[in-house]
Design a protein around this nucleic acid. Structure first.
Length: 268
DNA sequence: GTACAGGTTCCGT
DNA sequence: ACGGAACCTGTA
């Protein structure tokens, strides 16, 4: 699959704005990731983006290719700060990721750093995911809730997730038993979805909001991690308790997009 | 050695 | 209800 008109799509920005953990660049500058049960390769030149995946429909959905990001950027371009952020990270796309994988990934992200988050997820997949062969190399899918629901904390010890192990198991059990139905959240509003997700141990507002935004495309939510709090308080001179009201007033239903541009801007 | 990391839970007022 | 300490592990 080759995309030629990609002014609103940049691979590095998309994979580097903190929404995903399973994409890496190899020696040749090709991004390789596992999603939707496929090993996907993506490469960007000045003129085109080349994506290698057997399922084109999946790619269109995963990279949110039907959406007009130019229009979104215009809508949220309210001041010089967000304007600069859009200038820097205007190629970010919000990936539509698997709810279960996104949920566990952000449970693991709690009080953690990105290299270690990636390492833990990678080890979890190697230990309990399904093997996929690609160009003579082994890759692994993200393990199912059923597979993880029967594990003990001792079983998970090798992945070194620390105190988060019990949260992963709790999530797996609640999903596998059907006590929580992740697919039902697609049809919920953000507040209702957040309430459901927070029934899982290790899921608070921040983790729930990341899942709502990165898996369910609830674009009105604005996940507030320590970085975005620093960025908003410093750049906009807003106190921490006023962030919600500020974001709602400025970006309303498109807060999630603004969050990603500002996050990327603040960290680069 | 010790501080701290994309947060949440637990335990004290 | 509310605020602070504790939490696994790895790295600086």
């Amino acid at each position: 699959m080759i995309l030629t008109n990609h002014k609103d799509f940049n691979l590095k920005q998309t994979f580097d704005c903190g929404q995903c953990f399973r994409w890496d660049m190899n020696e040749s500058g090709v991004f390789v990731g596992v999603a939707g049960g496929y090993v996907i390769e993506a490469f960007q030149t000045e003129k085109e983006i080349i994506i290698d995946c057997p399922d084109e429909d999946f790619i269109i959905e995963y990279f949110d290719l039907k959406r007009d990001y130019g229009k979104i950027k215009n809508s949220i371009n309210k001041d010089e700060i967000i304007k600069a952020a859009i200038q820097l990270g205007g190629g970010i796309r919000l990936l539509k990721q698997e709810p279960w994988e996104t949920l566990v990934s952000f449970i693991i992200s709690a009080n953690n750093n990105i290299p270690r988050i990636k390492k833990i997820i990678n080890t979890l997949c190697q230990s309990y995911g399904e093997k996929i062969w690609h160009k003579g190399e082994k890759y692994y899918t993200f393990p199912s809730p059923e597979k993880l629901a029967v594990l003990t904390r001792e079983d998970l010890a090798p992945i070194k997730s620390g105190f988060r192990d019990k949260y992963i198991i709790d999530a797996a059990q609640k999903i596998a038993s059907g006590r929580i139905d992740l697919s039902s959240i697609y049809n919920m509003g953000s507040d209702e979805g957040r309430h459901v997700l927070k029934q899982i141990k290790g899921v608070g507002d921040k983790v729930a909001d990341c899942v709502l935004l990165f898996a369910y495309q609830k674009f009105d939510v604005f996940p507030k991690d320590v970085w975005i709090k620093r960025i908003i308080t410093n750049l906009y001179n807003i106190s921490e308790k006023d962030i919600d009201a500020f974001v709602e007033k400025k970006f309303s239903s498109l807060g999630g997009f603004a969050q990603q541009y500002l996050f990327y801007f603040g960290r680069c």
